[in-house]
Measured scan of single mutants.
Amino acid sequence: MSIQHFRVALIPFFAAFCLPVFAHPETLVKVKDAEDQLGARVGYIELDLNSGKILESFRPEERFPMMSTFKVLLCGAVLSRVDAGQEQLGRRIHYSQNDLVEYSPVTEKHLTDGMTVRELCSAAITMSDNTAANLLLTTIGGPKELTAFLHNMGDHVTRLDRWEPELNEAIPNDERDTTMPAAMATTLRKLLTGELLTLASRQQLIDWMEADKVAGPLLRSALPAGWFIADKSGAGERGSRGIIAALGPDGKPSRIVVIYTTGSQATMDERNRQIAEIGASLIKHW
């Protein structure tokens, strides 16, 4: 067993022997301040990774656009098919120029040779490549099948209805392509620590998230040296922004954090800054 596999296998073990965790309302004060600064709703939840206990939450059962955070769930569904012998990570998928959609920095470079399922998941999570996500959605049967996968996990809230990039439209009061912070946090925890996926697939999923290259201005910008984070960000229309993450000190994750916002007129930089400040408060009061 590799060191990384050992780390993920012992996530519940280490967490069980940690000192009790206590909620700190100071972080919620910052979440509410972010709402004021952005002029928009902000949803927040913080779960203990081992027990699933909610440590703090704000608007945990209000719907927010998922945006690209759905790509972690998508690759979880792909990995479940791999575990069941219905898919192979090494299978190569070929596609054409007509398949390319807006923001496809990886797939646009491989029109000639195609990409493997493993490479597509890596591109979808680490670079948020939209064509990679659409190609992977095709392998599982489309958005409705991802929703069905989530329902089978016990998540009857999260739903995907459309493809990239239309799913980022974020129309107010439109339930399409949305989740709730509580539902997303619980589902992410199941994917990373539950028995739904094999140990190898859980490790692969967290490795992809740990290698995320496009979430630097968010929670990662607030992390002290030595902290662990595996995350996936999302951005959408109407001032929408979000991030889902597993993080913790001492090089291992111990909490799940989900943050979503929508309806702001603020710039992307300002949305990023507010999420980073929430992260800084979380870490300060850990």
Rank of each mutant, 00 (worst) to 15 (best):
V78H: 03
I93T: 05
L167R: 02
E195T: 12
G242A: 10
G234A: 10
L167P: 04
F149R: 07
T193Y: 15
M153D: 04
V72E: 01
Y260T: 03
H5R: 08
K32F: 08
W208V: 02
P60E: 15
D269V: 12
L79T: 02
V106K: 07
Y44W: 03
R241W: 02
V31L: 11
E166A: 13
I171Y: 14
K109S: 14
T261W: 04
D177H: 01
T262D: 09
Q37N: 15
G251K: 14
V214A: 08
Q88W: 12
F13Y: 10
V8N: 15
E56D: 12
R189T: 09
E175D: 14
G142K: 04
E210F: 10
R162Y: 03
L205F: 05
V29A: 14
E102V: 11
T107W: 01
V101W: 06
L192F: 12
G234D: 00
G263E: 06
K213D: 02
T147V: 11
L282G: 03
E62T: 12
K30Q: 10
S128L: 00
M153P: 01
E87M: 12
E195W: 06
R220S: 04
L55W: 07
E277N: 11
E46S: 13
P105M: 06
A235Y: 02
A225R: 13
G251L: 09
E102C: 07
T112A: 13
V257G: 01
Q4T: 10
S104E: 01
A40K: 03
E175R: 12
E175A: 14
G239W: 01
F228A: 09
I244K: 00
P217M: 14
S122C: 08
P224A: 05
E87Y: 05
P20V: 03
R238C: 14
N272V: 04
L47R: 03
N134T: 04
F14Q: 03
S104L: 01
A15V: 14
Y103P: 07
H156C: 14
A123E: 04
P181A: 07
D83I: 03
T69C: 06
R118W: 15
P181C: 08
V42I: 12
T139F: 06
R92L: 12
T139Y: 07
V101R: 08
Y95I: 11
L136A: 06
E87W: 05
P172V: 12
T267R: 12
E35Q: 08
L28S: 08
K190I: 08
A245V: 04
K30A: 10
E270A: 12
N130A: 03
H24Y: 09
A148K: 14
P20W: 02
A148V: 13
T262V: 05
S233W: 02
G142E: 05
K32E: 09
V257I: 10
L19G: 14
E102A: 13
M184V: 09
K53H: 13
D161I: 04
G236L: 01
A170K: 06
S240W: 01
A9T: 15
F70C: 08
V82W: 07
H110I: 05
F64Y: 06
E277I: 13
F22K: 09
I206Y: 15
M184F: 09
W227C: 02
F22S: 15
P253Y: 10
F6C: 10
T198G: 12
N173C: 13
L199C: 15
L247S: 02
E277Y: 08
D155F: 01
L192I: 15
T126Q: 09
A235C: 04
L137G: 04
R241F: 02
F14S: 08
D212W: 02
F64E: 00
G90I: 11
F70W: 08
P165A: 07
L100F: 09
P165W: 05
D99P: 04
V8K: 15
L136Y: 00
L205Q: 02
T267V: 10
H110E: 07
F17P: 05
T267M: 11
T187L: 08
R92I: 14
A40E: 05
E61Q: 14
R63M: 07
G52N: 08
F17R: 05
L282K: 02
G85S: 10
V31I: 15
R118F: 11
N173S: 13
I140G: 04
A182D: 10
V8E: 10
F64M: 07
D177F: 01
R241C: 04
Q204F: 07
K232H: 00
T147K: 08
G39M: 10
T69M: 03
W163K: 11
I206R: 12
L146V: 11
T131G: 14
M67T: 10
I243G: 01
L10P: 08
S51I: 04
S201I: 02
T138H: 14
M268F: 11
I229K: 02
E145S: 12
L111N: 06
A170I: 09
V82H: 09
Y44T: 02
V257C: 07
S68I: 00
T187E: 03
L150N: 05
G236E: 02
E175M: 14
A211Y: 09
A123K: 02
P172Y: 11
F149I: 10
A34P: 02
A77W: 06
I243K: 00
V31D: 01
G142I: 01
K109C: 09
L38A: 07
V42E: 00
S2H: 15
D36C: 15
A148W: 09
Q4C: 10
T107Q: 01
P165V: 09
L223C: 13
S240K: 01
F14P: 02
I3W: 07
I11N: 05
K53T: 14
L79C: 04
L218T: 04
E56A: 11
G52R: 05
R91H: 10
F70T: 05
L247M: 15
G236C: 03
R162M: 05
A133C: 05
R92W: 09
G263V: 04
G251H: 14
Y44H: 03
P65Y: 03
K30M: 12
A225L: 12
T147Y: 04
S2A: 09
V8F: 14
L100K: 04
A16P: 09
L188W: 04
I93G: 02
A276D: 05
N152Q: 15
L218R: 02
K109N: 12
D99T: 09
S104G: 06
K232G: 00
I259E: 00
V78N: 02
V29R: 08
S281T: 13
S233P: 05
R63D: 03
I244Q: 01
A9C: 12
N130C: 05
I275K: 00
T178Q: 03
G263L: 06
E175K: 12
E108D: 11
H5P: 08
L55F: 10
V258R: 00
Y260E: 00
D212S: 07
E62S: 08
G251C: 09
L137W: 03
T178Y: 02
W208L: 06
I206H: 07
Y95Q: 02
S96W: 12
L73G: 06
A276L: 08
H5I: 06
E35Y: 02
I244M: 08
L205D: 00
L191V: 09
V29Y: 04
L223I: 12
P12S: 12
I283P: 02
H110N: 08
S221C: 11
E119I: 01
L38Y: 09
V29N: 15
A230D: 00
P217S: 10
D212Y: 03
E277F: 08
I54S: 08
L137E: 04
L137D: 01
A34F: 09
P20S: 08
R162N: 10
M153V: 14
M66E: 02
A132C: 03
M184K: 01
A84T: 14
F13C: 10
A15F: 15
E270G: 08
P60V: 12
A222N: 15
R63E: 05
Q88N: 13
R159S: 08
E87I: 11
T147E: 09
C75M: 06
D83M: 03
Q97S: 14
T186C: 15
E61N: 13
L73V: 13
S201H: 13
G142A: 04
M268G: 07
V82E: 05
F22T: 06
A246F: 11
S2R: 09
I259C: 07
L79K: 00
D113N: 13
D83F: 02
D212Q: 07
D155G: 01
D129K: 00
L89E: 06
A183I: 09
R59L: 03
D177Y: 01
Q203T: 12
P253K: 08
K190E: 15
G216D: 08
Q4L: 09
G90M: 13
L79V: 06
M127H: 08
G236A: 10
D113R: 10
W163G: 09
L47W: 03
I93H: 05
W286F: 06
T267E: 11
V257P: 00
L89T: 06
G76L: 04
G142R: 03
M184E: 01
M115T: 04
M153S: 13
E277K: 11
I45Q: 05
P172D: 13
R255Q: 03
D212H: 04
L205T: 03
N50E: 14
T126L: 08
F228S: 07
L146S: 01
